[in-house]
Each structure stands twice: as structure tokens, then as C-alpha cells.
Amino acid sequence: MTSRSPLLARLDSPRVLGYLLITPAAIILLGLLAYPLLLGIWLSLTNATIGKPGEFVGLQNYATIFADPIFRGAALFSIFYTVCAEFGKLILGLALALLLNQQFRGYRASRALMLLPWVAPTVLSALAWLWLLDPQFSAISWLLIRLHLIHSNIDFLGSGWGARFSLIVVNIWRGLPYFAIGYLAGLQSISKDLYEAAAIDGADGWQAFRRITWPLLLPITTILVAFSSIFTLTDFQLIWTITHGGPTDATQVFTTLAYQRAISGGQLGEGAAIAVSPIVFMVVLAVFVVRSVREK
């Protein structure tokens, strides 16, 4: 019998081996997630500009942006955009999932097609929407005029609220498959026995949905809403491609304003403060979502 080396003996300890195995993942997470986040927070506390590290200025950047009506407008629209888009995606995504959960001719192809908006590059779909929302050449306006529902083109992007709601619609269109596929997976995990038992007890479709389907979908709803809210609150590509934050800053959100100030304008400190500020909203949002779902 040969004696084992002390190194191998140590590796036998689950505690040592566990830490060892988790180290690569921890390094990646720290390097790719924690470092940029901490750097962003640090930059937001400095007066750094492009090419100049800057000096520590405390919360001055935050004081500046909170006094800025454009930032306040961007913050309000970011929240409005997120809430409206999430609500739309949740309702329509659930409806789509319920529909696709039925077995009908071509249901497999329908499920695959449903994913298209989600898998298409965001900039490409944004450019397609830019055409659809064009004040002069919109296919939507063209169709509605042909159907005699309107008399002249709709000015989707020419007014503040028109542009805001147009962006929300585009975001719902893009994010819908995420909710639908999530809910579809949730629906398929619900045992059919429950519905059969409910039917024997005389429950109608709505009662079965309210008492069985929805409660069992709540856990996945929490995850879908939480993740999707983060994606939506940090949306950049759709908005930048379609409106550039215009008209008159009506569609500025945290990300577009941060980009404008930090990258185009070179004010890294202020831009970082704008970029960091939604973290507070995201934490509040996450707590709210988790609590509301738990309470139900």
C-alpha cells in the first residue's frame, strides 16, 4: 500500500476542492461583472473625462444630474417605458403561450416562428421598425389608408408621446417571445391531472386558469418579469436606432443619456452617474416584484 501525498489528501477535502473548482467561475464573474460595475460606480464619483482619470468629487455628479430636467425626464420615461412594456409583454406573452400550448396543425412551426423577433439582431429589427414608423413611407399608415381607416399618414415619431408609445410597442414586439416561451415551458410543466380534477369538481375554464394555471405560473412570472425588466430598463439599441432620444429629448432613457454624456460628450463621470442611477430603480423593482408575487 502506497502512502498518498499531502496535496492529494487535501484535495480530497470537499471544502478545499469546492473552493478550487469554483475559483475559475469566480474569477470570470469578478473580472467581467464586478470590475466593470465597481469601475462605473467609482467613475461616477469622479470628474473623469475621456482620456483623463479625474479626481474624486463625491456625490457631485449625482447632485448635478438630479438637478437636470433632462435626466429627470429620462428617469421618468425609463420607468414608464419599462412598466408599460412589461405589462404588455406579460399579458400578450401569456395569451400567446396559452394559444401555443394547444395542439393544432402547424403548432410546432408556430412556436419556432414566434421566436423570430427575439432572435433577430436588435438593430436590424429596429431599422425595420424605423421604416414601418416612417412619417412618409410607413407600411402601417399605407395599410390603414387602404382600409379607409385613416385619411393621412400617422406621425408616429414626430411628437413626444407618439414616439414614446411607438417605442413601447416595438419593445413589446421584441420581448414578447421571451415571455411566451417562458410561459409555454411553465404551462407544459403543469400536471393535466389538476385540470381533470378541477373539471370533475365542475370548474369552468376561467376558474381553472385563476385557481390552477396562474398560481402555478407565478414563480416563472417572477423570473420573467425580473429579468425582462432589467433588459428593458437598460434598453439602448432600439431607442438609439429609432429616435436618438428625440424629439426634444422626449425619448431619452438612462442608457441613451449616459451614452450621450459619457461617450459623445466625453463627460465620463457624469455619464457613469447616469448609468449607475438605475441600479437603485432596479433593486426597488426587484423587491417590489418579488414581494407582490409572494403576497399573492
Binding site: 412619417p135 412618409q136 413611407f137 414626430g158
Partner: peptide, 21 residues
Amino acid sequence: MIEGVAGWDDSSNNKAFAGGR
């Protein structure tokens, strides 16, 4: 002006001019 100029990007006037709008 034609309606919608507040939503125009840098390509919009090219398209509108070429399209005779």
C-alpha cells in the same frame, strides 16, 4: 413643412425628396 419632420433622421429628407413628397 410636411408632417413628421420632428421624427426625421438623417436619411428621411433624402427619401422624401427622392419620393417627390
